Simulated scan of single mutants.
Amino acid sequence: MRLVTLAESGQGSAGIVTGDRVIPLTGVNESLGTTWPTTVLGLLRTGEAAALSGWLRERGGEVLSGIPSIPLEQAQLGPLYHGAVNVWGVGANFREKAANMAVVPPEMEPICFLKPASTMIGPGQAILLPDGAGRITAEAEIGLVIGRTCKHVSPEEAPHVIAGIVLTLDMTAQDVHARNPRFLGRSKSYDTFFSFGPELVGMDEIGDLDALDVQTVLNGSVRYRSCVSDMIYSPWLILSYFSRMMTLYPGDIIMTGTPGSVDIQEGDTAECRVGTLIPLRNPVVQERIRTIL
């Protein structure tokens, strides 16, 4: 199953991607009399995402063929969802990047950080460069989207608790972090410093996760790329690690590391590419300071 959010639908209705077309979930309900939650986060939090995926596997071609759809290339795709979800990341998880940084992550103890909900943006939305923050970088990563509430998950159980994967871009204020390693969390917490989307892709669409090629792209040029198999800590080990610390909830996202980061400036476009999935692209602009009361 592949899900997107249609920006032109007002509240952001979920859409099912099938081939080169998108079928709004509101249209599915209207045509078939079903009562699926019509937002991606609603599907996740009610546990209906897994049920919808199973329903589509069993009856997808039969039930969707006659429902009005939108060409994927014409669809306006918005943020998958907004809300109070946890976004976690790990650092220096690709072997080559860790070697270039001269970083040796502790055995069985990934370097981790948390990003606040205010960092979240979606495809096409602007990454804002904070005034006075100095050098800013962007890095492409695969994110694991939690599909059901869980804790103390083993690596073997991890594939069964996720709703799927999502492309992400993680931004960092490098000069802030360079002043003190303890400022890692602060350097990643500015507004718009986490982008994800444009689609949530179920594992039934992925096949071999280890074979996925992750690319950090700047202005259309691939700057870094590496396969998931080159990670120091596998995605399933990372999920298990976080689940031993805290309860994971539907919609939570765990980033799994990047093959490399690029400096970004106003006018740039940062991009995450993974295999044949829809790329995640965000323009970069200088923040115009305004007061919110």
Rank of each mutant, 00 (worst) to 15 (best):
Ala102Tyr: 10
Ala102Gln: 14
Ala102Asn: 10
Ala102Pro: 00
Ala102Trp: 09
Val104Asp: 08
Pro105Met: 08
Pro106Gln: 09
Pro106Trp: 02
Pro106Ile: 09
Glu107Pro: 01
Glu107Ile: 11
Met108Leu: 15
Glu109Ala: 15
Glu109Lys: 08
Pro110Glu: 14
Pro110Trp: 02
Ile111Met: 10
Phe113Trp: 10
Phe113Ser: 13
Lys115Phe: 09
Lys115Arg: 07
Lys115Ala: 01
Pro116Gly: 01
Pro116Trp: 07
Ala117His: 02
Ser118Cys: 04
Ser118Val: 01
Thr119His: 00
Thr119Trp: 07
Met120Tyr: 05
Met120Ala: 10
Met120Phe: 10
Ile121Leu: 04
Ile121Gln: 00
Ile121Lys: 05
Gly122Trp: 12
Gly124Thr: 04
Gly124Ala: 07
Gly124Phe: 04
Gly124Trp: 03
Gln125His: 13
Gln125Arg: 08
Ala126His: 07
Ala126Trp: 05
Ile127Thr: 10
Ile127Glu: 05
Leu128Gly: 01
Leu128Pro: 13
Leu128Ser: 11
Leu129Lys: 11
Leu129Tyr: 10
Asp131Ile: 13
Asp131Asn: 11
Asp131His: 12
Gly132Trp: 02
Gly132Leu: 06
Ala133Lys: 04
Ala133Val: 05
Gly134Ser: 10
Arg135Glu: 09
Ile136Cys: 07
Ile136Arg: 06
Ile136Glu: 07
Thr137Ile: 06
Thr137Gln: 05
Ala138Tyr: 13
Glu139Trp: 12
Glu141Val: 13
Ile142Met: 14
Ile142Val: 15
Gly143Asn: 00
Gly143Thr: 07
Gly143Pro: 00
Gly143Leu: 06
Val145Asn: 06
Ile146Val: 15
Ile146Pro: 04
Gly147Ile: 14
Gly147Thr: 11
Gly147Ser: 11
Thr149Val: 06
Thr149Ala: 11
Thr149Phe: 02
Thr149Tyr: 04
Cys150Gln: 07
Lys151Asn: 14
Lys151His: 12
Lys151Met: 10
Lys151Leu: 03
Ser154Glu: 09
Ser154Trp: 11
Ser154Thr: 15
Ser154Arg: 10
Pro155Ser: 13
Pro155Ala: 15
Glu156His: 05
Glu157Phe: 05
Glu157Met: 15
Ala158Ser: 07
Ala158Gln: 06
Ala158Val: 13
Ala158Trp: 05
Pro159Asp: 01
Pro159Ile: 03
His160Trp: 15
